[in-house]
Design a protein around this nucleic acid. Sequence first.
DNA 1: TTGTAGGCGTTATCAT
DNA 2: ATGATAACGCCTACAA
Lengths: 344, 344
Amino acid sequence: MRFEAITIKDIATALGLSTSTVSRALRDSHEISVETKKLVRAYAEEHNYRPNPIALSLKEKRSRSIGVVVCEIANSFFSQIINGIESIAYDRGYNVIISQSHESYKREVIDLNYLASRSIDGLLISVSMETTNFDHLKSLHNKGLPIVFFDRVVDEIDTHKVIIDNSTGAYNATVHLIENGFKRIANINISEHSFIAQGRLSGYKKALQDHNVPIDEKLIRYCEHGGQDYAELEREMDALFAQKKKPDAVFAGSDTMTMGILRYFKSRKMRIPEDIALVGFSNSENADLLQPALTVIKQPAFEMGKKATELLLKVIEAKRPDKDFENFVLPAELVVRESSERKK
Amino acid sequence: MRFEAITIKDIATALGLSTSTVSRALRDSHEISVETKKLVRAYAEEHNYRPNPIALSLKEKRSRSIGVVVCEIANSFFSQIINGIESIAYDRGYNVIISQSHESYKREVIDLNYLASRSIDGLLISVSMETTNFDHLKSLHNKGLPIVFFDRVVDEIDTHKVIIDNSTGAYNATVHLIENGFKRIANINISEHSFIAQGRLSGYKKALQDHNVPIDEKLIRYCEHGGQDYAELEREMDALFAQKKKPDAVFAGSDTMTMGILRYFKSRKMRIPEDIALVGFSNSENADLLQPALTVIKQPAFEMGKKATELLLKVIEAKRPDKDFENFVLPAELVVRESSERKK
DNA sequence: TTGTAGGCGTTATCAT
DNA sequence: ATGATAACGCCTACAA
């Protein structure tokens, strides 16, 4: 409480004690008499004393706050993760400072500099789609900043990671499409270099192989900006449907892309699932209200946020650095709805 | 940069100067020789010196950060506002600390205590739906904390406010329904006591009056939890449709409620707009992809965030307290789609 | 032009 | 059991 905030010094003066005595009384030190403690506590209570966290940060070189970097909080998946992060952080007395990269590498670097300069005790990050150079993260990590990656992790940095089982998620979605009679299943994925895209692609391919459906590389496309840029998505979709042998189903690699593709189909008056089926990763709360109701692969976002935060706090509060890092994998769930209904 | 951070003292020692000289050189004081400045700057640059914001906060009693309290970041309206807030704040060198009340009064009080103790320089808040007692805000305001309200404002506190023209938004939506042939238009609104609900209700009523449509109080209902609680919404809807003279259109007072009502209709197999038309406040990016595509009243959320932040920074950085507060009103836009199509 | 000292709020260390 | 002092990193009034 910055405004007219009462300090230890104020209490000391008022009670005719020294600041150290007051400080100790407040922290219930055994070397302070019961009476003094009572006195100090009563006064502090009455005047609503709150220790100044800024001063504490300066002294303790820790801020009891953790930084979070995501691409976009307006994305359900990430806002659900943030809720998970908060649920743990607040319980443990940590503040959460949220930054958005908006999928920009440049912005991510700025965010990180900012957070680092605010003396965050640790960092939770899902890297931007544009990020291919990880020096900014390595540098912070080398300086000893505890980092836990979630969702979009960085392989080259050795620390805890919490990810989704992208491969199995993609596998199940693809199998579902195959079993419902779809044969030419396209995969529109996020940036090719990303860890996530790789996992999703591998699950997709494995499903095709396991069911003796030939893999056609022409049915696999990437959007560098992961659907944030609708024009890019449109370009890729146009290219996909310009082919002679057109797909009869599309498997989309991210929430934004799933919505974008749905928009694309509607604007082209393509009927779903009659003309084209659609399944995509999405954590939207309203996927069931869409036209058509969307079959999605849903990720345990809240759980992911919780787990990542627990791991981070473990590192932050560890007495000695632990070199034994977890790679925690959470399952994705296939929710079947109209957009992938059995082909007649 | 908490980790091995270089300080002014380090620079002073390395260069054989005093900390004050270094400090002044860094701030380009006129009383430092050009040479010394150059020397200090070069060294600082080379070692990537960054002033410690914690120390600055302690000294200056300001943190260059502003607190934001919203009910839910997962709500498009609020996440868009936050993007607006950030866009201004970062430009002006302010950090944004986001807290969610989850529509809980208790949580709002906790959030506020927390933010206040973190020495925020100012507060942007849209109060929770549960909040009817404003003492926690008054107290902070009286202590001199600059506050700007947005969207859900508190009348009794005299400061800048940025709101939507709820009345005109509701008026236009209602007129649109009337002109499309709907006669029994229900209004499901958020908490009756709220400023927002009042505005929306008055616009709705005025539209009916202006078009000689009788006002039927039985068609007006409230959800205390603003649609967050689906069971409550369901109860109100059930009551609404249990009446003899059923509505032929529903005008919904918030994003969550709009989606909830859509879900309600679908679960009851009611066709939209054939059986029942629907128009609602919503900032969802995907309202056009729903079944049916939804007619919405869209609010300039990003602009709202920007404007509120500009006003707040004006107060924060004002030399002398200004008693002349703005009540900035932004227009809402009606976006017509299928869910309110003309009645045959 | 540069240096010294004190203070922002707190706590740890070392007296008393 | 309590107090004085120094320190965290920075800035600034005052000295030199």
